[in-house]
Design a protein around this nucleic acid. Structure first.
Lengths: 137, 137
DNA sequence: CGCAAATATACCTTGACACGTATATGCTCC
DNA sequence: GGAGCATATACGTGTCAAGGTATATTTGCG
């Protein structure tokens, strides 16, 4: 249980995190809103705390938990490497009727104008198909 | 194994995804670059394919795998709800940098009273308090 | 046609982790 | 100081996923 990704893999933990976005909450408040048993909440909070997603402060017998930003940034920075890739593909998504689109195999070169003038761009299904066969699955 | 978060929780799968960012790869290429046994690669690729992270195309006896953008966008959109929060905090962190140590990523530093103002009821620190325990395992 | 290469799958084992139940710890107030 | 609330932890259990090994499947080639 080292990586931030394992931490957020658990649905209940994600629920807790989402809950804490609005404001800090006590264990009991989380317990009630998410309708999960108290030990479960406490244990997940412990995991979240040790991973740096939350921190706690003592308020009488309660403990108030609030988010900490660093692990989220870590996820975000991992995602960063894929971001250019998927934004390139956004409109391919929009009209993904175009199913037999041959994937440009050597596209290491970043394309420039894609984001701007993408609207008109059409994939050229030219004769140089680079031997691509059927698709997937 | 439904959610995208469980998929990317696995380190080897993240490695595969990162590899595929540069260009599509065959199973054998992945196997060699990541130095993991072939069945492992194939099984992870299957998981990734069924979750929509990659798609494959047949090229002779090879199969070429390439990324698909949708699941990444899903992760990104989940992250969205926290984004405002953490960007707010980057500033706050810089402001308070001298006072506390918010950037230590490992450990959840128990802080006294550095949270916001406690809204209701102020507790006060009794003599035999054994302060701030309960953090950090 | 038979072999080799590339990839997928089946089977088994193991370990991690999430959960439930029960109990411990800590704090407040009377 | 004892009762009661809020939270944490200990323990036992079941499930599920990842790894390893072996084998199946497909394709190319001599």
């Amino acid at each position: 249980m080292e990586s931030v990704f394992e931490i957020i893999a658990e649905p209940n933990r994600r629920a807790i995190l989402s809950l804490l976005v609005s404001s800090q909450q006590s264990v009991g408040e989380i317990e009630r809103q998410l309708r999960m048993p108290q030990p479960t909440v406490s244990k997940h909070l412990r995991v979240l705390r040790e991973a740096g997603f939350v921190e706690s402060m003592v308020d009488a017998q309660r403990r108030l938990y609030r988010l900490k930003p660093e692990p989220f940034q870590e996820v975000d920075s991992w995602l960063e490497q894929f971001r250019r890739f998927w934004s390139d593909h956004v409109d391919a998504l929009e009209r993904h009727l175009d199913r037999m689109d041959p994937l440009t195999p050597k596209r290491v070169t970043p394309k420039r104008a894609t984001l701007t003038k993408r609207k008109t761009r059409r994939r050229q299904r030219g004769p140089n198909r680079e031997r691509d066969k059927g698709e997937t699955k």
